[in-house]
Design a protein around this nucleic acid. Structure first.
Lengths: 196, 196
DNA sequence: TGTACATCAGTGAACGCGCGTTCACTGATGTAC
DNA sequence: TGTACATCAGTGAACGCGCGTTCACTGATGTAC
């Protein structure tokens, strides 16, 4: 009985956390990443900034948990993808990173800062490893080949680089940028031909 | 006579600018990118923070000019490379981005922030286009093929992605990370085989 | 040669702001006896 | 049933700090006549 109550409370706590995380994720598409502060997230969620610290140790801690949930969604999306092919995988990944400002910004936020060695960064590193493994599994499932592990790592890293490089590419419209990224993604996976 | 004096003055001004830029570039390897402020750059250069604003309109303006100079150096380095091959090109690019913290951070700084539309960002966009063209030229010179333009774009973007993804990859030592990145870079250019 | 003026590098101090985070407190709910 | 106590979500206000940038000013150098 007691433990059930405790569990309910724990669930409720998790729910509250995810409300805060979703508020943050919402904001990312409304406001430039670097202009978002704790007060913004709080008011988006309808609470005070101080409240957030009941649930997260720091801003980076909230961010890393947000990214974890988001990565879970990507993995799920890739797993449930219909008519799976390596081309479709690439397009889906590129589109996700292009459209979900939150995902991309959070990913860069943690990837680009090295050093520092905070608790949040350690958490991120665990997720990073986990994601690489999951992505590798998905690629393996798809190709059936016993390809060496670093191939799928090369694959994802390349796609990430393409999105980073061209998501704000000048002159082009958003639509053209998307098409360019798709084109390049297909170049990357083009089989049996020189890549460059 | 007058115009000579004016020119000398202009030269001196450019020299002073480059002193500030070099001070900033120096700092990037000493201190995490996001902890560097105008006062740091100023004291590294031996002037006051206010002085910087005699030469640069803003922090981002200084940064973008620093990046321009750095990109010039990369292009020069790639052009002067001995025993040129596409493999060596890849390794050189990867190493440069891995070792020159300044280059990598500045590149990400401008690539990741979109929107905003500041004067500095517009400057960056010109350089971005210019760099893509130069890099394309180098790749073309090297391969001799009439490869389509987006191939060299795919190539560089992939390498950038690899560095972003693995430069702080946990568990591994710095040496192992470098080796991993080299390995992946070679996978990316591996010809006549499936990329993934 | 001397004097008045213009130019501009350089600066210390301050402005103004916003940030992440903490504190002391309230009030609601559940628990113990 | 009532009372004392514990727990904890939530908060307004403040802390403390550092940032990019501006301002009013000094002083050196060059120019004009």
């Amino acid at each position: 009985m007691e433990s059930t109550f405790l569990k309910l409370k724990e669930n409720e706590r998790e729910l509250r956390k995810s409300v805060l995380i979703e508020a943050a994720m919402n904001l990312f598409s409304k406001k430039p990443f670097h202009e978002i502060g704790m007060r913004d997230i709080a008011s988006e969620a309808g609470v005070s900034a101080a409240s957030i610290y009941r649930y997260f140790a720091s801003k980076d801690d909230l961010y890393v948990e947000a990214l974890i949930i988001d990565i879970g969604k990507i993995i799920k999306k890739l797993d449930e993808m219909e008519k799976r092919s390596i081309e479709k995988l690439a397009i889906t990944v590129v589109d996700y990173m292009f459209d979900q400002e939150a995902t991309f910004q959070l990913m860069c936020h943690f990837l680009v800062r090295g050093e520092e060695a905070s608790a949040a960064l350690e958490k991120f590193h665990s997720v990073q490893i986990l994601f690489v493994k999951e992505f590798n599994r998905i690629v393996k499932d798809l190709t059936g080949e016993k390809n060496k592990e670093f191939h799928s790592e090369a694959f994802f890293a390349s796609l990430a680089g393409v999105v980073m490089m061209f998501r704000n590419y000048p002159v082009l419209t958003k639509k053209e940028r998307r098409e360019l990224m798709h084109k390049i993604a297909l170049v990357i996976i083009e089989k049996g031909k020189p890549v460059i």
